[in-house]
Each structure stands twice: as C-alpha cells, then as structure tokens.
C-alpha cells in the first residue's frame, strides 16, 4: 500500500468515521490491513511473543471499532490514536500495572470538530511521519526504542553503551529536528 503523504492520513480518518456512522466493515478491513501488522510489530518489539502479539493486535483493532465514536480527528491522527490504544494494552499485558489517564477535556456541545482543524492536524501528522523517515538511522532507532522497547532511558544506555546524558541529548536533538521539519 503506497503511503500517499497526507492524503492517506485523511483517508484513515474517513474510514473511522464510516465505522462510527455505518459500521462499515470494508473500511475496517482496510484499516486492519494497514495497522494490525504494525501493532503486532510494536508489541513484539516490546517483548511479546508472536502469538500474544497477534491476539493483542486483534484486540486493539476491535477496540478501535468499539471506540470509533470517541475518536477526535482534530486532536490525533488515526495512527496516533491506535498507538495510544496499543500502548495502554501493552502496559496491561507486559507491566501488569494500572495506567492513570488524564481527565478528559470537557468540550462544548458541538458534535463534529472543525474541518479546518482536522485537515491541519492530519497534515502535520503526515509531515511528522515524513520527517521521521528522513532522520539519520541512529536517531530514528533511538526514538523507536524509546517508544517501542519497554525500556527506560537508563536501560537503553545499558544496551547501546551510550551514557544517559548522551541518550537524552540525542533524543532531544532528534525531537528538535522533528519540530523544525514540521514548521
């Protein structure tokens, strides 16, 4: 599936809305083809075996279906939203501890977010993704380890032999580059 820049991110949003409004199984199948293998990879990198990761990836995608009415495309891309669902599932699964979540923002009564906000957010997300793809390999891997590995920064240091200060400054440098790429 050719990732077609921001176009793709907006397509995913429409898919989630079709699931929300019409329980559209074809839209769900598309999302599943794209995201389930990525969620499975994420869970395996965090230490789950293939069978557990497979089962949890299905579970994460089923959660997307059940929570479609809670998705706000003015605040997150579909990829970001799925990441947060998968991350929380991973904490249940591998750490077996609670994850306290912030209170939800209490929005006004409006049902649909502003279309311009949705477009802007989805385009920013697409640019961020492009920026990550362009990072030097070592910086991209560090960010990936920070998010995918169930590792604290000090554990990353133990594995790569880099001192903690270096790791932190490298992560900041990588983030800085990402922020610039988004401007």
């Amino acid at each position: 599936m050719a990732a077609n820049g921001n176009c793709k991110d907006e397509t995913w949003v429409m898919h989630v809305i079709r699931i929300r409004d019409h329980q559209d199984q074809a839209a769900f199948a598309d999302l599943f083809q794209h995201f389930a293998p990525r969620v499975k990879a994420f869970l395996m990198k965090s230490g789950a075996d293939a069978a557990t990761a497979e089962e949890c990836a299905q579970d994460v995608m089923a959660t997307l279906w059940r929570k479609a009415h809670l998705f706000d495309p003015a605040r997150a891309s579909v990829a970001t939203w799925i990441f947060t669902i998968a991350r929380n599932r991973r904490i249940d699964l591998l750490r077996k501890s609670r994850r306290p979540e912030p209170e939800d923002l209490t929005w006004g009564p409006e049902a649909e977010p502003d279309q311009e906000d949705v477009l802007a957010l989805q385009q920013d997300s697409a640019r961020l993704k492009a920026a990550i793809a362009e990072l030097p390999e070592n910086q991209r891997l560090l960010i990936e380890r920070a998010y995918f590995g169930d590792l604290s920064h000090s554990e990353i240091a133990a594995e790569t032999g880099l001192p903690l200060g270096t790791i932190k400054s490298r992560i900041r440098l990588a983030l800085e580059r990402l922020r610039h790429a988004m401007r």
Partner: peptide, 8 residues
C-alpha cells in the same frame, strides 16, 4: 503521542 503514532 503523535510522535509515537508516527513511529508506529
């Protein structure tokens, strides 16, 4: 979180 989504 958006960074996490992009990496995913």
């Amino acid at each position: 979180d958006a960074l996490g989504g992009a990496v995913l």
